[in-house]
Design a protein around this nucleic acid. Structure first.
Lengths: 157, 157
DNA sequence: TATTGTTATACTCTATAACTATA
DNA sequence: TATAGTTATAGAGTATAACAATA
């Protein structure tokens, strides 16, 4: 009984949110939610979430940085970083090393297994993005990244 | 004492997350967070959040749609839509109208004041995006929207 | 039996204040 | 006095299960 109605709505279903698709913020949000869902699935295979992958990657690239610096880089509160660092440290992926010059600070250092996991996860994430964005040409992907980055830098300045 | 150190770190500070900026997902997330902060500020002036603006806009554009349809369009759970609809209805912006053919459903209809607020908020949001993305040319903005939309449609298909 | 709206609930994420130890 | 890390906590946002009314 709802067949014709269903068919009619189905024709429009993809565009029920058309009053919003014109907004860049909305387009970003919908695109990001797709990326996040796929990324979470990939990272779960490494026992990581997006935020823990981000933190671990930065610690590997910048060994010795402090929790405040990491929190600033990831734009999360220091207080919320604590349990995340606890988690990574508890798994033996990083250590909180004392800083001689300032005993308030913790120098975050990756362990050998932390570096190994970061490298493996990086390959996984790179493969995930390559596959997911294969509907865009290499040039389009580069343009997309360039515009997002340009926007962020321009607004932050 | 930390002056040289501070200066040194400041030179690199903008790029502490450089291990991540290459990822499109990360670039999207950082860009979106900027948009959301500004959008929230603008919408607060209308007593709206991003999600309530989205819901109201769709109800105005598609009067009579049901809660399930709206939840699908916005990709939120039906259960979580209930309080949102309560809120809009409580403010007299929309009504839950009975559907004669199927008394389980509620046809969501905008009121006159709902249409008015939606129109005003739309102007505000449009102005917010115009100002925020002024660092990108009109062509770049169009390209950005096109790629985000193309990506979403390609992956959803 | 299946669907719509609803309630209850739990889990994650995020934001804020206050504490400690150091500087 | 100010800062780094920590704790506690409250508020959003989100996901799931179960229910009543209706199909």
């Amino acid at each position: 009984m709802a067949e014709t109605e269903a068919a009619a709505t189905h024709d429009n279903a993809a565009g029920i949110d058309s009053p919003l698709t014109h907004y860049l913020g909305y387009a970003m949000k919908r695109a990001l939610s797709i990326v996040q869902a796929d990324l979470s699935r990939v990272l779960a295979g490494f026992g990581l979430r997006a935020v823990s992958f981000s933190a671990l990657s930065i610690i590997v690239a910048r060994p010795g940085l402090t929790q405040t610096q990491l929190a600033d880089a990831l734009q999360i509160e220091r207080s919320n970083l604590v349990t995340l660092i606890d988690e990574l440290a508890g798994r033996g992926l990083i250590v909180r090393a004392p800083v001689a010059q300032d005993r308030r600070r913790h120098a975050l250092m990756p362990t050998a297994s932390g570096k190994k996991l970061a490298a493996e996860a990086k390959e996984g994430v790179t493969a995930h993005e390559r596959a997911l964005f294969s509907c865009l040409t290499a040039q389009e992907q580069e343009d997309l990244r360039h515009m997002l980055t340009k926007f962020r830098q321009a607004v932050s300045a």
